[in-house]
């Protein structure tokens, strides 16, 4: 059984439908990249998968014993976060939230988990620093460490490299790939198609035409060819 199975999903806000007839599935250990133009509904799809909003139609089935509090999420950055007074350690710890239930304070195990994930992301030396004083790449590592505190199984990432310079972007992709190799399932939104075809095992392309399949199938498909060449010519300009 798949970890997440999506059947005939229809997405939208209030009465406006953005996307219809979406079906795909994600198995354990896979690396799914969601691509598509701006405004095509990628973030909306991710929020629907996370249960932050209701689907207009269709269904999402969580399988393999995946519970809702076992999902790690890296949201697209919001303005509120940018001027928030919070130390790196406070933020990473807040990823353990779901484990606490009603217990008011974090226990030792959770604190160790937070330390371990800061270590893993190479941000231990910033533990006491303020989040808003860090660079974009460091901030993303903090949020990734937080997401890792919430899950051992699956990470959903919404444009994790937007606004980062090429070197940091490459580092970020390496980091995500290494997590995938450790066995964590990845679902990542990106409009960087070249990275998608480089790292992902599966591609979901949404837009006027919907494509879902493995990376190889995508590169052979019409949608894929069209998008890849368009991307390349855009980069040449």
């Amino acid at each position: 059984m798949s970890m997440i199975e999506v059947k005939e999903l229809e997405l939208g806000y209030e009465n406006r439908t953005i996307l219809k007839n979406l079906s795909f599935s994600v198995n354990e250990g896979e690396y799914l990249c969601i691509v598509g133009e701006n405004g095509s509904g990628k973030s909306t799809l991710m929020k629907t998968l996370l249960g932050l909003q209701k689907p207009v139609g269709g269904e999402i089935i969580l399988g393999d014993g995946l519970r809702k509090n076992e999902i790690g999420y890296l949201p697209q950055q919001t303005i509120v976060q940018k001027d928030f007074p919070a130390s790196v350690r406070e933020i990473v710890l807040s990823g353990c939230q779901a484990r606490c239930g009603l217990r008011p304070f974090y226990n030792r195990e959770e604190k160790q988990l937070a330390e371990k994930n800061m270590e893993r992301m190479g941000i231990t030396k910033y533990a006491k620093r303020c989040y808003r004083d860090l660079s974009g790449g460091q901030q993303q590592r903090v949020l990734l460490a937080r997401a890792l505190c919430a899950t051992r199984k699956i990470l959903l990432l919404d444009e994790p490299v937007s606004g980062l310079d090429p070197v940091v972007t490459a580092e970020m992709y390496e980091l995500i790939e290494s997590l995938n190799k450790e066995g964590i399932t990845i679902i990542m939104i990106s409009h960087d198609i070249s990275a998608a075809v480089c790292y992902a095992s599966h591609i979901l392309h949404i837009g006027k035409k919907i494509f879902f399949g493995t990376r190889e199938e995508y590169m052979r498909s019409d949608t894929g060819k069209l998008f890849i060449t368009r991307e390349e010519s855009a980069e040449d300009v």
Partner: peptide, 22 residues
């Protein structure tokens, strides 16, 4: 005091908190 950590999580990033089940 009892909900301090929850209040922090909900204030800092509501969608993350809600996505992980808070």
């Amino acid at each position: 005091l009892f909900f301090y950590n929850k209040i922090f999580a909900v204030t800092f990033d509501e969608s993350f908190a809600s996505a992980v089940g808070t």
